[in-house]
Computed example of a mutant assay.
Amino acid sequence: MRLTADASGLFPIAPTPFHADGRIDEASLDTLMERYIAAGATGVTVLGIMGEAPKLEPDESLNIAARFAKGMAGLPVIVGVSAPGFAAMRWLARNAMDKGAAGVMIAPVPSLRTDDQIITYYRQAIEAIGTDIPFVIQDYPLTLSVQMTPKVIRAIVEEHPSCVMLKHEDWPGLEKISTLRGFQKEGTMRPISILTGNGGMFLDFEMERGADGAMTGYAFPEMLSDVVKLQKAGKRDEAHDLFDAHLPLLRYEQQQGVGLATRKYVLMKRGFISSDAQRKPGGTLSATARAEVDYLLARLAKIDARALPLAA
């Protein structure tokens, strides 16, 4: 299976589950896949920023990619291959595709500043991995500090037929989606899939601006899937009502430094993973923070029954 520009729905960003001693929790990898499929995922993305990819050895990264490619019931698996150098990027990209991945995701290195630098970087990256591998542009200026204008994204898409998707994580970014879809409508940019991130913080309106779905790791992937489906069905109020119920927890997850710890804690409580451990260096939640998250879950359970087991 190869990733195409028609991809849509929910591609959860998978965390990498660890035991307390830092070993990869392989049993939890299998549980994650089962739960994502049950949640309505149409694909999955591994080894992203949330997946603590820089903390992994190369063989560990490849083994995770291979395990997901085998276990996701034929759904497309996107592998994050971003790296400081192109040799490492090429090694993981080529080997992951050999193991059954559907495509790769490439983020710009933080040192890029001008439009020409960004366009040149992607040109060199695609020369390195090969033009036969479908790839996703990751546009995440909040973390990567690289500002991609819609015109730069269009230039990359038009230069590289193997570019099939944008992971849109700009903030504010709603106008960027509208502009890109405007390019597509006027015929100056070929159609690509746009999946959105940022923890799902703006998914409700991103779908209305033309996004095809979500690619993020919020601890209730079922909500993300439902919002996407409701918006596509034209059930705007129902989509916003469900989204609004989850917004306090979404907001809590967005805190710099403890966001991943919060997400892993909730995923652990929900049975997606057996431990909320991060591989060092990593953040942790204080007892007070855990109590706050538990309170948010109890409030959410009054509206979304999927949180009920967590309310006790």
Rank of each mutant, 00 (worst) to 15 (best):
V258Y: 00
T16C: 09
K176S: 12
V152E: 07
A88N: 02
P281D: 15
P161W: 01
F205Y: 11
L166Y: 03
F272Y: 15
G43V: 05
M165K: 01
Y295R: 08
L142R: 14
G85H: 04
I137G: 08
A65L: 00
L174I: 15
H19E: 08
Q256K: 09
E175G: 15
K269M: 10
D116E: 10
D115G: 14
I13P: 11
A277G: 09
M50S: 10
G51Y: 02
M50I: 10
S275K: 06
K151T: 14
L142D: 12
E253Y: 01
I177H: 02
L92A: 02
D304R: 03
A93G: 06
M50W: 07
K269G: 14
A211L: 05
A73I: 00
G71F: 06
H240D: 03
K70F: 02
G197V: 07
V109E: 13
F135G: 09
L29Q: 09
D241A: 13
V157I: 09
R299Y: 00
N95G: 00
T131D: 06
L297N: 05
A301R: 03
R90L: 01
G271S: 10
M215P: 06
V228S: 05
S82K: 05
M50A: 11
R209A: 12
Q117K: 03
G100C: 04
A96P: 12
S8R: 15
G40K: 10
G51E: 08
Q255P: 00
I303N: 02
L203W: 01
F11P: 14
A7V: 15
I273E: 02
Q255H: 03
A311D: 03
M223S: 09
L56V: 08
S225D: 07
V44G: 01
R263K: 15
Q278L: 15
R154F: 08
V136D: 05
G271Q: 10
S82H: 03
A38K: 13
A102Y: 04
M50G: 14
L250Q: 08
R270T: 13
G182Q: 04
A14G: 09
H168K: 07
L112Y: 08
E60Y: 02
T284K: 14
A287G: 11
M165C: 12
G210S: 04
P54C: 12
L3E: 10
I126F: 07
S178I: 11
R90W: 00
D204N: 14
S274E: 12
I64L: 07
D276S: 14
P58H: 02
M207I: 09
L224T: 08
V146N: 04
I153F: 01
S61F: 03
P161E: 13
E238D: 15
R236F: 10
M33H: 00
A219V: 13
E127N: 06
A101C: 05
Y122P: 10
E186F: 08
K280Q: 15
G234A: 04
L47H: 03
K185Y: 04
Y252N: 07
D244I: 10
A53E: 04
R35L: 04
R279I: 12
H19W: 07
P134S: 01
V104N: 03
G71W: 06
S145P: 00
N63E: 15
A301P: 06
